[in-house]
């Protein structure tokens, strides 16, 4: 892998971590485990549409691990990791179907997949089928949060592309 490529991935990971930690400071008005804006996933969605599968996986893996250490909530890692794996697999498939102009729908499905993975992990760990009652709320919040992060990327992409082209000249 070229040094330039590694540097790009590292910068993206750093940006994702910064967003993640800033988001931790925003109080969450919804008292349901698993509901989050997930702003750090702006970087994930961008990476899915710009980098190869293993490169995206690297960004997400490092973000998850360092995020859970910095955030001081390592027990939550199993939930976020299983969510992220499902989300990544789904989005890497979806990017073949959905072009950049409709990217936000891919982001919505990615968010819902993330919540599904989280829910599956929580069910497996706690052995409590009653937790499924949260799932509808997660669906609603996943759709909204996914649409938001997806639209962020969609508005950002043309500007970022222009900027990157200027740099190369």
């Amino acid at each position: 892998m070229k040094a330039r490529r590694i540097a790009e991935l590292a910068v993206l990971t750093a940006v994702a971590l910064i967003i993640f930690i800033i988001e931790l400071q925003i109080p969450n008005p919804f008292p349901i485990p698993g509901i989050k804006l997930g702003l750090a996933n702006i970087v994930t969605v961008y990476a899915v549409y710009r980098y190869r599968a293993h490169e995206v996986a690297m960004i997400v893996a490092v973000r998850l691990l360092l995020g859970s250490i910095f955030g001081g909530n390592i027990t939550a890692l199993i939930y976020s990791a299983s969510g992220a794996v499902l989300c990544l697999l789904g989005m890497l498939l979806l990017r073949r179907i959905i072009d950049e102009r409709h990217l936000w729908t891919a982001s919505v499905l990615g968010a819902v997949l993330h919540n599904t993975g989280q829910m599956a992990a929580a069910l497996a760990v706690t052995q409590t089928p009653g937790l499924l009652a949260y799932y509808p709320f997660l669906l609603v919040s996943g759709c909204l949060a996914g649409a938001f992060t997806g639209l962020c990327v969609q508005f950002m992409l043309p500007r970022l592309n222009k900027f990157l082209e200027k740099k190369k000249e």
Binding site: I97, V112, P136, L139, G142
Partner: peptide, 15 residues
Amino acid sequence: VLTVCIALFALGLIG
């Protein structure tokens, strides 16, 4: 895909 998104959202609201 858009239809699936809307369906999931509606399902979530009803649930």
